[in-house]
Write a protein that binds this DNA or RNA. Structure first.
Lengths: 217, 217
DNA sequence: GTCTATAATGAGATAGAC
DNA sequence: GTCTATCTCATTATAGAC
C-alpha cells in the first residue's frame, strides 16, 4: 500500500468516520467500521490517531467547520431589499432544503452533540459547536437586517439564540415525522415571529412589539 | 433470592435501565449495567426479557407514559382568567423547571428518540413519542385557551407542533449551554409569539395577525 | 425460578515482521 | 510506515446445577 502522509491519513479517516456516523450512527462508528470505510488496515488507524477519542474530537471540529462553509454562502445571496419576514423565511427554506437533502447528516450532528455532552472532557466541544451555530445565525440575521433595512430591537445575539432554537426544533420534528407540511408551518411561524423582533431602521428606538421580560418567580 | 413475579421483574429492570440511561447514556446502558443497578443477576434479565431490544422498547413506552403523568397536572393548575401570553409563559416555566430539576432525564429522552430512529423496526416508537408530545401540547394549549378566554386562529394541532419545536429547541440550548438567561429569553419570545396565534373568543373569526402560508418554491 | 459459569462475538489497542 | 496476527477486555446470550 502507498505511503500516505499522516495528515492526509487523518483527514481520510475523519471523513470516513463522518460517512459512517451519518449512515449508521455514532454507536456503530467503531474503529473497525471506520477503517473499512476508508479502505485501510486497523493498524493504520492507530498510527494516525492515539485512539478513538482523538478521532472523535477531530471529527466534531471538522463537521462544525463544514457546517460553516455550507450555510455561510446561503445568507448573502440576495441583496435587493425585501421584507424582514421574507428574508428570514427564505433563509429557513434554504436551511431546511439542506436538511431534506441529507437527513442522515443532520441526524449525525445531533448525535455528535449528545456524544460530546456525554463524554467526560468533551463537553466544551458541544458548546463550541453551538457557539458556531449562534455566530452563523447572527451573521444571517445581520444580512437580513441589511436586506430589509430594518434593525433588531433586541441584541442580535438574543435573536440568534431564538433562531437556533427554532431550527433545532424544526429539524427534530421533521427527522422524526418527515412531515413537510408541518415543517412548513413551523417555518412560517418562525419567520413571522422572528421578523417581529425588528423595526424600521429610520424610526430608530421605536419598539413596535417590545419583548417583555418575565421576572423569575 | 426471593421469587419475584415476571411482571414485577420486568418493571424493576425497566426502571433500573431508565436510571442508567439518565446517568450514563444509552451507549452505556448494557445488560450488565442494568442488572447491577437493579441488583439482579444477568440470568434474571434473560428470564424476564428475550433480549436487550425488547427491554428498550418497553423502556421507551414507559418513559413516554411517565412524561404524560409528569406534565399533565401542570397544565390545569390555574383556572382564573389570565392573558394568553402569561398562561403560556407560566406553562413554559413549569416545563423548564422540570428540565432544570432533572437535566439528565431530559438528555435521556433525546437519546432514546435518536436510538429509536436509528434502530431498524423502532422508528415508529420515535413517532409515537412525538405524537404524545403533540397531544400533551394540544391539551395545554386548550387549557390556556379556556383560561385566557381566547381562541386559536389556526388548528390547535399546528400550534402544538410549533410549541413542541420551541420546547425542544429551548431544552437543547439549555442542556448544551446551561445558560438560564438565554433560556428565559427563548421562553419570553415563545410565549409572545405563540400567544399571537390566538384572538379574542368573542370576535370569533377576527385574525389580528394571520399566519401567511408561503407557497413552496 | 434463580443462580454461577461459560460460551460466542466484537470491541480497542498493540507487537513485531516486513 | 504499513501490514498481519494477537492480546485483552466487555458485551450479549445461554447451559446447566440447584
Amino acid at each position: 500500500m502507498p505511503r500516505i502522509p499522516a495528515d492526509e491519513r487523518r483527514a481520510a479517516l475523519v471523513h470516513a468516520a463522518l460517512r459512517v456516523v451519518a449512515e449508521r450512527g455514532v454507536a456503530a462508528t467503531t474503529t473497525r467500521a471506520i477503517v473499512a470505510e476508508a479502505g485501510m488496515s486497523l493498524a493504520s488507524f492507530h498510527y494516525a490517531f492515539t485512539g478513538r477519542d482523538e478521532l472523535m474530537v477531530e471529527l466534531i471540529n471538522t463537521v462544525v467547520e463544514q457546517e460553516e462553509r455550507t450555510l455561510a454562502p446561503a445568507m448573502t445571496s440576495t441583496t435587493r431589499p425585501v421584507s424582514m419576514r421574507d428574508a428570514i423565511r427564505a433563509g429557513l427554506a434554504e436551511f431546511f432544503s439542506g436538511v431534506q437533502r441529507d437527513p442522515q447528516r443532520e441526524k449525525a450532528m445531533f448525535e455528535l452533540t449528545q456524544y460530546a455532552m456525554r463524554t467526560p472532557g468533551m463537553e466544551m466541544l458541544a458548546r463550541r459547536q453551538y457557539r458556531r451555530y449562534y455566530d452563523l445565525a447572527a451573521s444571517a440575521l445581520e444580512a437580513a437586517s441589511e436586506m430589509s433595512e430594518q434593525d433588531w430591537t433586541l441584541p442580535i445575539d438574543d435573536v440568534a439564540t431564538v433562531l437556533v432554537a427554532l431550527t433545532d426544533g424544526l429539524t427534530i420534528a421533521w427527522l422524526v415525522n418527515r412531515d413537510d407540511a408541518a415543517a412548513g408551518a413551523i417555518m412560517d411561524f418562525a419567520a413571522d415571529a422572528v421578523a417581529r423582533l425588528a423595526a424600521d431602521g429610520r424610526t430608530g428606538s421605536l419598539h413596535p412589539v417590545p419583548l417583555e421580560r418575565t421576572s423569575p418567580s
